[in-house]
Design a protein around this nucleic acid. Structure first.
Length: 406
DNA sequence: GCCGTTTTCGGCCCGACTGTTTTCAGTCG
């Protein structure tokens, strides 16, 4: 049974998507996306909160709180039902196709009545998109390729699979004479449980030879995009790898940007804006004069924003910014902290005791750190609900990544 | 719709790349 926060998060995200498709104010769309994320990561169960408690959640105001309250009571809210009636669910599903955003999805529906991925494929086959503004031959090809990708099950892979690929790419590009520094970034550096694509960052004196070497790797199935500083490929295993090349003097800013998450980046950039600064992958700048302030290390960037360095595993905009501002960032487990491995089962699978009893027992025995390596790690993660468990969740994630690499 | 070191209105992250719309909108991360 998913926790109420996740149910509400999904409803608000759906509302944001449908608002975007139906041409709603982009800032309102973003507001609901932010509120959805904020609720998903909030430490307290939203079903236990009253209106005032809901409005205390960051990015949740009176209007959103009202919708959340209605959703908790009835399972949905009226404004969402209105949009569901206006936009078929298949139109939203079409946005899962790479290259199709809300504008193009809505255009296909409004002008051609296409309301599902299957109908879209059939329409392209029948040549119905010919002459439609914004849809040329190349776009049609890309959509068909995107549909094939969507229909392949399990686009995301476990972290150990992505890590192996990343280390292979790093091994091949790291030896080039132009390469000064190289690292994996993105969700891989944040140690997410599953990885959608692999992000590689290179600091190089000249980007072109690095790009060329990357696009020529033996396991490249297709070059998706290729520019002066950024190239994306898809491997024959079906995983996308993005390469970004920067100059060595902006390594820290680029690594901070390329590590994400997107939500964390938006928060740090907002902090920069409020301080009269501008943050991008090229550095932290004075907004007015455009003068570069810092870019060389991540530590400098965070420090100039008034924050301590935040570990990548925490960068999800799930309270880490606030914790950093309060000086209350958690101490994360290191490999040297691991003394052993205890395998146990909870009643999520074939054990007898519930997760909560396992945790209480571990605490009662004085274990500072512990990982439950059940056969159902995702179910376990979903049950990590209370505020203190956020820290624990990250510890488990780090432990899992250690296991994956050993 | 939310929010405040520019606080009750005005702004909301930033840049790369693609395809197509001859100058830029849409999408992505």
């Amino acid at each position: 049974m998913p926790r109420s926060n996740e149910v509400v998060q999904a409803l608000l995200q759906e509302y944001a998507d449908l608002l975007a498709i139906s041409g709603g104010d982009p800032f309102r769309v973003r507001t609901y996306e932010k509120a959805a994320r904020s609720i998903g990561g909030y430490h307290a169960e939203v079903s236990s909160l009253d209106q005032k408690g809901l409005e205390a959640i960051p990015s949740v105001g009176k209007s959103t709180a009202g919708k959340v309250e209605e959703a908790l009571r009835t399972g949905t809210f009226a404004a969402l039902e209105d949009l569901r009636a206006a936009v078929p669910s298949g139109v939203r599903q079409m946005m899962a196709i790479s290259g199709l955003g809300p504008k193009k999805a809505m255009l296909l529906y409004r002008d051609l009545g296409i309301s599902s991925v299957e109908e879209l494929a059939a329409a392209i086959d029948a040549g119905r998109l010919k002459g439609l503004r914004g849809f040329g031959d190349r776009t049609e090809e890309n959509i068909l390729r995107g549909i094939a990708l969507v229909q392949e099950s399990g686009a995301r892979v476990q972290i150990n699979v992505a890590m192996e690929l990343a280390e292979d790419v790093i091994g091949r590009l790291g030896g080039l004479k132009e390469t000064r520094q190289i690292a994996y970034a993105g969700s891989l550096r944040r140690m997410a449980e599953t990885i959608g694509d692999v992000d590689i960052l290179v600091a190089a004196t000249k980007p072109a030879p690095v790009m060329e070497a990357f696009a020529s790797l033996p396991n490249v199935e297709r070059v998706i995009a290729r520019g002066e500083t950024k190239t994306s490929i898809r491997t024959i295993q079906g995983l996308q790898v993005d390469l970004r090349v920067v100059t060595p003097d902006v390594w820290g800013a680029a690594l901070q940007y390329f590590t994400g998450s997107k939500a964390h980046n938006i928060r740090t950039r907002e902090i920069a804006v409020r301080k009269g600064l501008k943050l991008s992958e090229y550095g932290l700048f004075d907004a007015k004069s455009g003068e570069l302030i810092v870019a060389r290390t991540e530590e400098e960037v965070y420090e100039r924003l008034g924050l301590p360095w935040i570990a990548p595993t925490l960068r999800e905009d799930r309270g880490e910014i606030e914790a950093a501002l309060r000086g209350e960032l958690p101490t994360l487990v290191q490999e040297k902290d691991i003394k052993g491995d205890l395998h146990t089962h909870t009643n999520l699978t074939d054990g007898l005791a519930p997760l909560e009893e396992m945790i209480a027992a571990a605490r009662g025995r004085g274990y500072a750190y512990y990982a439950v390596t059940d056969h159902a790690p995702n179910l376990y993660m979903q049950r990590m609900t209370d505020a203190k468990m956020l820290t624990q969740r990250k510890r488990v994630r780090q432990l899992c990544s250690c296991t994956a690499r050993s």
